[in-house]
Simulated assay, not measured.
Amino acid sequence: MTAAPTSAPATPTPTLLWISLLTVYLVWGSTYFFIKVAIGSLPPLGMLGLRFLVAGAVLYPVLRSRGLPAPTRQGWLWSAVIGTLLLFGGTGLVTLAERSASSSVAAMMIAVSPLFAALFGRIWGEKTGGREWAGIGVGLLGIGLLNLSELHATPLAAFLLLLAPICWTFGSQWSRHLPLPSGLMNSAAQMLIGGLVLLLLSVVSGERWHTPTAASAWALVYLIVFGSLLAYSAYTYLVIHTRPALATSYAYVNPLVAVLIGVGFGGESLRPLGWVALAVIVGGVGLMAWPRKIVKVAEAPA
């Protein structure tokens, strides 16, 4: 018997879900650029560990003061597992890859997430509709076009960018069937433990800290407030209440946002074929989002 997820309210609304989607689309699209800026003078794993630990340390006492119960021992355990998969396996590997890949390329490669989400979702009986599969296919076609004209990364960076969405989507789908903490406490617990794991890995790997530049410091502040406190909490909410393919459709929109920011502020460039590919990617998202209601139909616990 699988435990029912306990990490969100029982009555989600389409308005809140759309707001959550837009938040993840826009904010996470921008974080690729800010990660690139942050690791300009900060160690990758250490920067991420500080980002998530601070965000969790801010969110946790606020939630406790509002009466949310502390996670149980079992809740902390599963938060550690999922937090490590998502924050190290997902975000951490992307950050390491960005040492030798542009922010635009990183976002483009992560766009395979909806495909992995649909595949992993089937392990737990999730069904993916025909139009959703079509949307995934169209999105992947767009990624193929992008890679033909824009992919410039080392083999190691490309491997990390492929492994990252596997870790992220598997952890996301698994989390829907685990007894995780309630509401936003789920996000707080994952960020606290995930941040500690990342800092430990930073120490073990021998990363060195230096005085950061002003740009790196402000990028880290942005990542803490918007990338973690706001967007990560919105994503946790989406994982519980909507379909796997739609919850991870941010991966198709993020490249568009990342490219626009990279071109506008980071001095990156995109060829004409790249812009065509981005239009194809957005069309794939439309196919996934349009056919059914955004709110996931409630199911009886197995």
Results as ranks from 00 to 15, higher is better:
residue 133 W to R: 12
residue 255 P to M: 10
residue 257 V to I: 11
residue 3 A to Y: 04
residue 89 G to V: 10
residue 179 P to T: 14
residue 287 L to V: 14
residue 84 T to H: 07
residue 122 R to K: 03
residue 96 L to H: 06
residue 301 P to D: 08
residue 228 S to D: 11
residue 284 G to P: 09
residue 96 L to V: 09
residue 124 W to N: 09
residue 9 P to D: 12
residue 16 L to W: 15
residue 273 L to T: 15
residue 153 A to S: 07
residue 54 V to S: 14
residue 34 F to Y: 12
residue 209 W to D: 03
residue 128 T to N: 13
residue 263 V to N: 04
residue 284 G to F: 13
residue 50 L to A: 09
residue 123 I to P: 11
residue 1 M to T: 12
residue 227 G to C: 05
residue 227 G to M: 13
residue 108 M to R: 02
residue 44 P to T: 04
residue 35 I to Q: 06
residue 22 L to G: 11
residue 16 L to G: 06
residue 86 L to M: 14
residue 78 W to E: 10
residue 113 S to N: 01
residue 145 L to G: 13
residue 60 Y to I: 10
residue 218 W to L: 14
residue 8 A to H: 03
residue 71 P to H: 01
residue 48 L to W: 00
residue 152 H to G: 07
residue 258 A to V: 05
residue 119 L to T: 12
residue 234 A to S: 15
residue 114 P to Q: 00
residue 242 T to L: 04
residue 205 S to M: 07
residue 233 S to W: 04
residue 97 A to G: 10
residue 240 I to E: 02
residue 72 T to S: 15
residue 282 V to H: 05
residue 133 W to K: 08
residue 84 T to M: 14
residue 2 T to M: 10
residue 29 G to K: 12
residue 26 L to K: 03
residue 39 I to G: 13
residue 220 L to A: 08
residue 69 P to Y: 02
residue 198 L to E: 10
residue 285 V to M: 05
residue 121 G to S: 14
residue 85 L to Q: 00
residue 114 P to N: 03
residue 199 L to A: 04
residue 275 W to P: 00
residue 65 S to F: 02
residue 224 I to S: 00
residue 160 L to I: 06
residue 261 I to K: 01
residue 8 A to R: 10
residue 117 A to W: 01
residue 251 A to S: 04
residue 164 A to M: 03
residue 264 G to S: 10
residue 182 S to D: 13
residue 43 P to K: 03
residue 184 L to T: 07
residue 190 Q to K: 12
